[in-house]
């Protein structure tokens, strides 16, 4: 049966028309709203490629019923930074070689921003636990952890009035 509703995505009200009842937020973002940055792979919450923020909480877009997210603030990778102006996290992933095929990267960027917002100086164990819901089949995670640590150090240096990266 067709559903009509409005989602608030990256600060903009987006109309969704003639959607199926069981459609996930991942599906609606990609196939109805054209936001291809959020990736879909396992569709069972295992891989984290579809990580987005819903009302500030990092969740798997594939496990959110799109029509249930009416009235909530949704942020996708497209809402993190404008094209051509990467965030410190995105730049650190590039600089540390934490991006190989790139498929998991949007989800990991969302998860890393979420982690560093809550815990500015995470331990390596905390980074591993917080990113445990994001699977990367290329990097072996070493450079991803390094990228997160680089951001944490750069932000604390900047906060202390030191030279900014």
């Amino acid at each position: 049966m067709a559903e009509h509703y409005t989602l608030h995505v990256n600060g903009t009200a987006r109309e969704v028309r003639d959607a199926g009842t069981g459609e996930s937020l991942l599906f609606v973002l990609r196939e109805r709203l054209g936001l291809m940055g959020t990736k879909g792979a396992c569709e069972q919450g295992e891989c984290g490629s579809c990580s987005v923020l819903v009302d500030g909480q990092l969740v798997c877009g594939c496990l959110v019923l799109a029509a249930s997210a009416v009235g909530q603030r949704i942020v996708t990778i497209e809402g993190v930074a404008p094209v051509g102006a990467p965030t410190d996290v995105q730049q650190a992933f590039v600089d540390a070689g934490a991006v190989q095929c790139g498929f998991c990267t949007p989800g990991l960027i969302m998860a890393t921003h979420s982690l560093l917002d809550r815990s500015p100086q995470p331990s390596e164990l905390e980074i591993r636990e917080e990113l445990s819901g994001n699977i990367c089949r290329c990097t072996g995670y070493g450079r991803i952890i390094e990228a997160v640590q680089r951001v944490a150090v750069a932000r604390s240096t900047a906060a202390a009035g030191g030279p900014s990266a």
Partner: peptide, 21 residues
């Protein structure tokens, strides 16, 4: 539907059709 972490897996895999939620 609460968190969706069980139900949506079934829906995504077409193991369950939902009409009213």
């Amino acid at each position: 539907l609460a968190g969706g972490t069980d139900l949506m897996v079934e829906v995504n895999e077409r193991r369950r059709e939902v009409s009213d939620v």
